[in-house]
Amino acid sequence: MSTADQVRAFRGMTRAGTRSVLIYRGDLITGAVALVIQVVLAIAVWRIVYSGRGPVDGVDARTAVAYAAIAACLQSVLLPWQFSTLPMRIRNGQIATDLTRPLGLIWQVFGQNLGVLLGRLPLGAIGLAVAAVLGALTLPPGWAAGLLSLVATVGGALVAMLCNLIVSMVTFWTFEVSGPLMVYRFGSAFLSGSLIPLWFMPGWLRGSVEWLPFQAQVYTPVSIYLGQTRGGQALALVGVQLVWVVLSTVLLELVWRRARYRVVVQGG
């Protein structure tokens, strides 16, 4: 198959992913309402926590509130519950058909996940709009920081998707993946800094979190956007993202190679 055909197939998978999000309109509407309430309450919590207090650890109330709002929106786009259909496909044996398709399995799943992510973008936008109306958003310190945070968002999304894929692959060994996925999801929600920014974590915790890929997903783009991480340090964080992209790609390839030997089609 030529590269053009591959790209076309990949785009097809992406489109299918986006549609699978848009077709459940009830889910989408409640998802939006849920995110709005979550953003509103998160803003309220941080305002109440600060209530007139000056900067804590060099972070003022405005920045902390903006961080909470943006992180909640970013997380709801990046780490949805039903990110991938891969575990289900492995369990019911559909995987056999998937493997006969001309596009590689990894690319199929990746395309589908990207589609889901794109389909959920409007959700994030709604959340941000509400935060803006509530006066919870701030502008980035300059054009360069804004642009870099955009790059970091893409980098964070890539790391998130790769990690997600690797965890989904576990299904090849255990058939059921809800347990590992739960651990992953809630672990990453905390470790990515979307619940609480790394600034407020005690030293020992922060030290370990910085060695994990999760902070690259949410903390990096948001802290660059808010100007809490600037200049060379910001570039270094994006560099760390790049390292994680490379590392997780290699890991994914290794896991996938082993998984391919283990494809068991149920009932056949």
Partner: peptide, 19 residues
């Protein structure tokens, strides 16, 4: 599905524990 027992057990703890 034996492996699942411990991972799902941890899943429940992770959910509430992170909060």
């Amino acid at each position: 599905y034996r492996v699942n027992f411990w991972t799902t057990l941890m899943g429940g703890v992770a959910y509430q524990g992170t909060q």
